[in-house]
């Protein structure tokens, strides 16, 4: 079980020693079970930090904001930012390093091992509690979660309420860190792509029907894009406006935008949006599952990314986020790469 006090001690120490500018972590929220991000600058504030099964967030998202903020500062503080990561989140850091979006010296990584558990799926928990409201959730002693409800504390085996991605996790402890909290426990995942089986087993027309229903629901709120640490482009293809302006380009054309897709949430445009996003994440997605969690329409976005992750693994033996020095999937070519799928 992860010791929160150890985390606080490490956090407080690096702040006191002036090793980091601030620490990106989580603190409890006044509203609901899930905590909220905390940006801790003062050593005494580390007491606010929490760590429990409801810490679902991938905090590496905030490295994007940090980079943008720093770019605007005239005399930026070059000290690293402390960041608390789970195994999956640490893979995101590796991808960001691989893409040279951040440098290793930009971050001080406080890695936390999920050991034999992970984070919870709120919906699974709600179902389990049958309408009772969970007030608090903590890690238990024996790979279980201790849930505080109005009726007191109950213990639930973690496996029953873990989020889907934790059940298929490839990195249950951080793969890159400066400090590791918790243990590198052994865990066997039989099939990291098990959740795909349900959809893959459907005949093509059924699959199409399934996706059409799902994608049609999308209201294009872009929550999935906003929460994704890999969606850091300054200008998204969804709202591309750039084009070549020559001296004889008339004003009316300058005002013209490239519209790869319409903004209105209709079926065809929704498909383009989701497919482009999935393709742009191929070989980059580290399966933190945040896109699916934040979707207000319950679209199983994670499946799209997961499917491409599976293709990358099976065709090219490529896994994102384990080695910051490997060439990226789409830009690397090996002589032995399979070609039989090219028709």
């Amino acid at each position: 079980m992860v010791n929160l006090e150890e985390l606080k001690k490490e956090a407080s120490q690096i702040l006191k020693e002036g090793k980091v500018k601030y620490i990106i972590g989580l603190q409890s929220s006044s509203n609901g079970l899930l905590p909220v991000p905390a940006f801790i600058k003062n050593p005494e504030d580390v007491e606010k930090l929490v760590w429990n099964p409801a810490c679902v967030y991938n905090l590496t998202l905030f490295l994007r904001d940090e980079k943008r903020r720093k770019a605007k500062e005239k005399e930026p503080d070059e000290k690293p930012v402390g960041i608390i990561v789970k195994g999956c989140d640490s893979r995101a850091i590796n991808v960001l390093l691989q893409e040279e979006f951040i440098k290793r010296d930009d971050v001080y990584i406080l890695g936390i091992s999920c050991e034999n558990t992970g984070v919870l799926d709120e919906k699974k928990l709600a179902k389990k509690l049958k309408g009772k409201k969970a007030e608090k959730v903590e890690f238990g002693e024996k790979d279980d979660f201790v849930i505080t409800t109005e009726d007191g504390k109950i213990k639930i085996a973690a496996q029953e309420v873990l989020s889907e991605r934790c059940l298929e996790c490839k990195a249950h402890f951080p793969v890159i860190y400066d400090v590791l909290i918790g243990e590198k426990t052994k865990r066997n995942i039989e099939n990291p792509f098990k959740s795909l089986e349900r959809i893959e087993s459907l005949p093509p027309e059924e699959r199409w029907k399934f996706w059409k229903e799902q994608i049609d629901k999308c209201i294009r709120c872009y929550a999935c894009r906003s929460v994704c640490p890999m969606c850091y482009c300054d200008e998204c293809v969804v709202d591309t406006i750039s084009f070549v302006v020559t001296p004889d380009t008339p004003a009316e054309e300058k005002a013209q935008k490239i519209k790869w897709l319409e903004k209105s949430p209709v079926s065809s445009e929704n498909f383009v949006y989701h497919f482009v996003r999935a393709i742009h994440l191929t070989g980059r997605c580290i399966d933190c599952g945040e896109c699916e969690r934040v979707c207000p329409l319950d679209i199983p976005i994670r499946f799209l990314n997961k499917k491409l992750e599976k293709e990358a693994k099976e065709l090219f033996d490529y896994e994102a986020g384990f080695d910051p020095d490997q060439p990226s999937l789409v830009s690397s070519f090996k002589d032995e790469d399979p070609e039989d799928f090219i028709r």
Binding site: E99, S331, S332
Partner: peptide, 22 residues
């Protein structure tokens, strides 16, 4: 387009003519 480039270096890796660098 310097404004859009994030310096990820994928183009450098993929260029068959070694025409790109960071």
């Amino acid at each position: 387009n310097i404004n859009l480039c994030t310096g990820c270096g994928m183009c450098v890796q993929v260029c068959p003519y070694d025409a790109l660098s960071l």
